[in-house]
Design a protein around this nucleic acid. Structure first.
Lengths: 221, 221
DNA sequence: AAGCAAGAGATTTTCGAATATTTCTAGAAT
DNA sequence: ATTCTAGAAATATTCGAAAATCTCTTGCTT
């Protein structure tokens, strides 16, 4: 009786399906058939279809009319393009934030960073993998960094690119080869608070570049 | 018997509805009710809903769950944000294109520009307004400029921002106060072909800035 | 043996009705 | 007069089945 929700509205199914795609429950390239999805999410064709349609528009799922839907497939080329684009966009946003951000922005940023530092990165039960809580805190920190930029449109783009990146991230689970991610975050925050745009941007760039390199080796292996 | 399509598939309805929203048939802020949309596009609730869902995800329509859909509303603030973001994004893309674009890119660009120059800007029948053909050629030229950038993701973002801008554009119909748009295009092309990144980017920036200013006065008036 | 055609099965797409929710209206109570 | 509430109307959401389409198999022809 724990999950007896009589309301299976689209919003919820969309969130669920999205989480499953992002989390790798459905593999990239995998076909998403209505029959099995309806069963899995306990919803009707209509609501599954709406959820899929939205995911297509968000770039997480692909659709061929009359043929069906499938999870978007991954490639090295796309990963490189994504990384480069992400760096370009976030670089601009961070610079704006440093230029325009007020004290509220600073406060949120510091808060998000604090939470990130206090959240254990790896799970302790079972084989060590990056915990969902950490992923969440990590995302929030990076968004908090940009949040002072004052441009809803730019922020929105950054978020959607972050989602796309999440898609790749699960491959690199625990492959952090002697990398001090926490330190990188601390240094980015430090330069940002000091309003040192040059340094902050450069550190952010390296942060993403390193992640991408790890992902790339994981993807080729 | 000219339009007796028995197939009202989603793709078509989506395109139609999108064109109508972009073209101002449905005013910003206007509610989009299923009943009237079903009648207008001769389709069932399902396909209307899918089209609307997609438009929401594309940022052209807003949705409040259980309440309904409405055309996205416009504002000066959003126009400014949009313009600034567009300049930032296209600036990057153009710089990349100039840096990396090959001869095919050049050819497409020159071709698109030629077509733009040969397409009459204003309609001759009825009150003069900007013709759909010109709008189309105009969009294609600007996309052709960026197409050499080599980044599908960046190009995609640029296109979606262009759609958003289209949304505002219909207000400024024929308000071109002594502005030589054709000349601006020619100069942008010229600098781009000369691989003079600085100049090209600056001209593109001014091109958009001017458009935005005209739009802004039209919006406040 | 290769290629083609027909048909069965699987799957997506569309429909119209049933259901759930919100919004409007009118009347009663304060 | 104003606020509140019940009911009616309008509207969005969800469902399950019918229709359309694609895919795969099987048997036939060359």
């Amino acid at each position: 009786m724990t999950q007896e929700k009589t309301r299976a509205n689209t919003e919820a199914v969309h969130a669920l399906l999205r989480a499953d795609v992002l989390g790798g429950v459905h593999q990239p390239g995998e076909r998403l058939k209505f029959a099995s999805l309806c069963e899995r999410y306990g919803a009707s064709v209509s609501v599954i279809r709406e959820a899929l349609t939205r995911l297509v528009e968000q770039g997480l799922v692909e659709s061929e009319p009359k043929i069906g839907f499938k999870v978007r497939s991954v490639s090295i080329d796309d990963l490189r393009d994504l990384t480069a684009t992400r760096i370009d966009i976030e670089t601009i946003a961070l610079a704006y934030a440093i230029e325009r951000g007020g004290v509220d922005w600073e406060a949120d940023m510091v808060g998000a960073h604090h939470k990130l530092e206090r959240t254990p990165m790896l799970t302790t039960d079972g084989p060590p993998r990056i915990s969902d809580e950490w992923e969440d805190a990590h995302g929030r920190f990076h968004i908090a960094l940009l949040d002072g930029c004052g441009s809803p449109r730019l922020l929105d783009i950054a978020c959607s690119l972050r989602d796309a990146a999440e898609f790749y991230r699960r491959w690199s689970q625990t492959r952090d080869t002697g990398r001090d991610v926490a330190c990188e975050h601390r240094e980015i925050l430090e330069a940002t608070l000091a309003r040192d745009s040059e340094t902050a941007v450069e550190r952010l760039r390296q942060h993403y570049q390193r992640t991408a390199e790890i992902l790339e080796t994981a993807l080729t292996a």
